[in-house]
Design a binder for these strands. Sequence first.
DNA 1: GACCATTTGTGCGTATGTATT
DNA 2: TAATACATACGCACAAATGGT
Lengths: 263, 263
Amino acid sequence: MNREIMDLAPNSAASEPDGTFETTESPLYQQIARTLQAEIEAGDFPVGSMLPTENELCTRFDVSRHTIRDALRVLGERGMVSRRRGSGTMIAAGAPSSRYVQAMRSLEELTQYAHDTQFEIQRLDKVSIEADMAELIPAPVGSTWVMLEGRRWRPQSLDPICATAVFVHLRFAEHLHDARTAKGAIYDLIERRSGERIAEVVQEISAERMPRRAAKVLRLRAGAPSLRFVRRYIDASGSPMLTSMNWHPAEHFVYRMRLKRGG
Amino acid sequence: MNREIMDLAPNSAASEPDGTFETTESPLYQQIARTLQAEIEAGDFPVGSMLPTENELCTRFDVSRHTIRDALRVLGERGMVSRRRGSGTMIAAGAPSSRYVQAMRSLEELTQYAHDTQFEIQRLDKVSIEADMAELIPAPVGSTWVMLEGRRWRPQSLDPICATAVFVHLRFAEHLHDARTAKGAIYDLIERRSGERIAEVVQEISAERMPRRAAKVLRLRAGAPSLRFVRRYIDASGSPMLTSMNWHPAEHFVYRMRLKRGG
DNA sequence: GACCATTTGTGCGTATGTATT
DNA sequence: TAATACATACGCACAAATGGT
């Protein structure tokens, strides 16, 4: 292994009981994208400067040009770099320095995000819905849902990304028995095991003072500014299958997207 | 030429003066993506059904699998199809209405928003960029930009939507003399008058305490929770043409979007 | 449960085209 | 013009997930 990368994703390498090295790493191009993004965010490559050429990156990471291009494509989709043939790859205006960034424009990116991070479930219960949550889910007051509560972490990081509360419709309760150890997104788990397919997701972003429960989970002061994401996963009939709520400390989170012309 | 595709893109084939066929076609994978998208929209592949496998498409279009995958990646990014390893490529639920999906977050939607609301400009000045703004625009500290500051209103509403600060590159200053009375988005004004075209927009959403200037404009207390939008309008070379910053009072604003499968 | 064929995902090598410097 | 750098496109191999036997 001549490569400089050490994959630190949650589903990373693990030595097997019998002593063999059964690596379940994430794909090379994703590791490289993460590495480069981290370096950009750390300021190793200032905004407006050029990234090394594809060939240089091939040498550095000891991979093929295809793999480098896949990694750079990912960064391009996230708005981190802009590429011009003949010229090179530039750190895009507005690339973050020392800030967490998450750009999620599709279900697939959401899934990727779930894979790249870890959901530490602190509580898994059936609960009766009260007025404040009833409006958000939405669900009738007094109806019973499965609630998962906890924090989401980025590997290696000392601070959690956000506090999370997920409300899952009761009919999926049986599929959540091993949610604590299962990998990936909750919605993906449910889709696979129930066979019911999510038709769409509606995402709402708003700013609010951190509510007490979320603050407690994150060990922050209640009332601190936070960015709240509510995602409703909706079935074909338009009813919510599950709803997730995420509170991000304001100073650590930016939601970024690229807008393009036309359809 | 054994291929079935006829490229109908604007930069399509052209016969040279000397009679030879010097094709300046668009890339193969884009032609294939267009062809497949047209067929999906025409109903040749019903929503929920499976697309032919990659290998079948290779045979049909007489191209390599690599090219087919690039085409399918494009369709995935447009939310037209959803792919699953081991299973196949499915026509995404709601595929034909994908225009509506992107309408939530395209430049056009922004333009519509600008038309539906009014920008009350309280200040229009050339300013020297200080450190805090330099990072956001981004621009060198001490460089000169045109700054517009004010509030945005919804017609007939009693409360402003947000406080806005727009920084425009100095080379467009001449186009802004009547900005106070002009309708529509500032970026649109500049695009039409300068002829320079915006290549892309990167939008960032974050939560922060309302800064003093914005609070003053909105007549709110500084430090109140707010949702901040930063939009960087970037030219073909990757440099910012203008950057707008918008602070929305937290309790009055929710950013909502739909996420679809495929990218 | 094991096994297998199918299908997409990842990764490599190579060659050529085209825009930029 | 020449060199550089990204874009497109061919080929191959194997891995991983799926769905059936």
